[in-house]
């Protein structure tokens, strides 16, 4: 799973996206517990859940008036779609077990997301892509 392409796309729009998120006191992915605390055995499952979360809930609510930003978002979304397909194959081959911890963690992420209005929640989630990428690359 190459994150370099996603990382490059996000880096190009990071400042513009994060500047649209004024809420410092809440993180979707890292609140109240850091993503880095997830057990290694649960990593595949939560990665798949998070890719599904971004594809189904986040990208569609992130349109902006900036066409450059929109293009980058759709290219990131396409990378997520193909990555999720690959991870789906893992799940089918049963290599991607969902333990209690990842289920709990993902519930928390959804609760954080639903605690905000949808546009703020989507923009904040998009602005936290580097948190997801840092975690994925570190835990490789």
């Amino acid at each position: 799973l190459s994150t370099a392409e996603i990382r490059a796309g996000f880096t190009a729009i990071k400042a513009k996206i994060q500047s649209r998120d004024p809420i410092r006191s809440l993180s979707i992915l890292n609140h109240p517990q850091s993503l880095h605390k997830v057990k290694s055995s649960d990593r595949c499952c939560i990665t798949h859940q998070l890719f599904t979360f971004y594809v189904d809930k986040v990208f569609k609510h992130c349109r902006t008036e900036d066409s450059f930003v929109n293009r980058k978002i759709s290219s990131i979304a396409n990378s997520f779609l193909s990555a999720r397909r690959k991870l789906g194959q893992c799940r089918e081959q049963n290599n991607c077990v969902c333990g209690e911890e990842s289920t709990e963690k993902f519930k928390q992420i959804l609760a954080n997301y639903e605690g905000l209005n949808v546009t703020s929640a989507a923009m904040k989630s998009l602005g936290e892509l580097d948190i997801l990428l840092d975690w994925m690359e570190k835990s490789r």
């Binding site: 809420i23 410092r24 006191s25 809440l26 993180s27 890292n30 609140h31």
Partner: peptide
């Protein structure tokens, strides 16, 4: 300074 996600 503030930690993102904590905000204080």
């Amino acid at each position: 300074y503030a930690v993102y996600g904590v905000g204080k």
